[in-house]
Design a protein around this nucleic acid. Structure first.
Lengths: 148, 148
DNA sequence: TCGAGTGGTCAAGTGGCTTGACTATATGGT
DNA sequence: ACCATATAGTCAAGCCACTTGACCACTCGA
C-alpha cells in the first residue's frame, strides 16, 4: 500500500472521528445538556460502569490528575456526578454518576445511534456492523487521548 | 442496531483516531520534526497542494482567522512555510510550504503508512483497504474539526 | 513504627484560542 | 468614476483548560 493511500485512509478516519464527536456533542446539547463539552463524554464513559477515582480518570484521559480533578469539580458542580468515600481506600474518593449523569449518558448513546444510523443509510447496516467489528479489532487498550 | 452498539462503534472509532493521531505525531517527531504539534498536520494537509490563504486555513480548521494566522506565524518562524503575495488578490497572502514543509509532509505520510501497515498485520491488507473505502464514503465535506 | 509510595488538592504559570477593533484592498450598484 | 459594503489580514487583550510544583493525608511493607 502506497504512503499516499495510508494518508488518505488516515485523513478519512480523522475526518469521520471529528465529525462524529461534533455531532454527538450537538445531539447531547439538543437533548438538554448544554453545559458540557466533548471532553466530558470521555470522562462519563469511564465513570459509567461503577465509578472511578480521580487518578483512574486522569490515566484514562491522558491528562494530569490535577486536570482530572478540575474536570470532576465541574461535573460535580453541575450535578452530573458526586464524590463518595472510597470503600477500600480512605485516601481515595470514588466519583460516581448521579441520575442526571446517567440521563446524559443515555442522551449520548441516542445521539451516537442517530449518527450511526445515518451511516447505515449510506453503507447499509451490514457494512456498518463490519466497520465496527474491524475498528474494535484495531482499537488500542491504553488511555483515550483526544485525536488532536 | 441498539444504542449501546452504536456507542461501542463510536468509542472504537474515537479510540483508533486518538491512537492514530498520537502515533503519527510520534513518527513525525522521531523523523526529526520535533517542534510540531498534531494540529499542525491538519494545516499542512490544506497547504500541501497549492498553498492557501489564512482565511481558507481558518475555515478548514474550524477556528478563527486570528488563530489560523497565529498558527501560520509559528510554522513560518520554524521554516515550514512562507507567506507570498497572492497573485490575484492584493489583500490576501498565499501561504505555501517550503522544502522543509514538504519533507515533514512526507515524514507524516511515512508515519501513517507505518501505523496502517500495523493494522494490515491484524486485519489483512484487503480488510484495511475495505475499511478505508467505507470511511471515505461516510467522511464529511466540511471543516476538519479536532475530534474533541 | 517508620519510610517510601500513592490519592488528592491548592496555587501559580502557560499557551492556544477567543472576542473586539482596526487597516488595506476588492467589488458592485448607482 | 464614486462610494458603500464586504472581505483579507493583523494587533491587542482576555479567557480557560491544562501544566508544573508543592504539599497533606492515608496506605503498606520491611
Amino acid at each position: 500500500m502506497y504512503n499516499s493511500e495510508a494518508m488518505a485512509l488516515s485523513a478519512a478516519l480523522l475526518a469521520v472521528a471529528g465529525d462524529l464527536t461534533q455531532r454527538i456533542h450537538d445531539g447531547v446539547t439538543a437533548r438538554g445538556f448544554a453545559d458540557l463539552r466533548p471532553a466530558h463524554g470521555f470522562a462519563f464513559a469511564r465513570l459509567a460502569p461503577d465509578g472511578a477515582t480521580v487518578t483512574d480518570l486522569a490515566v484514562h484521559l491522558g491528562v494530569t490528575k490535577q486536570a482530572a480533578s478540575q474536570l470532576v469539580d465541574e461535573i460535580v458542580r453541575k450535578g452530573y456526578a458526586e464524590r463518595r468515600p472510597h470503600p477500600q481506600d480512605a485516601r481515595a474518593r470514588l466519583v460516581v454518576l448521579t441520575e442526571r449523569g446517567w440521563a446524559c449518558t443515555r442522551a449520548a448513546e441516542a445521539a451516537a445511534a442517530e449518527v450511526v444510523s445515518g451511516w447505515a443509510g449510506l453503507l447499509g447496516e451490514g457494512e456498518v456492523r463490519a466497520l465496527g467489528e474491524r475498528l474494535a479489532r484495531i482499537a488500542p487498550y491504553g488511555p483515550i487521548k483526544p485525536a488532536w
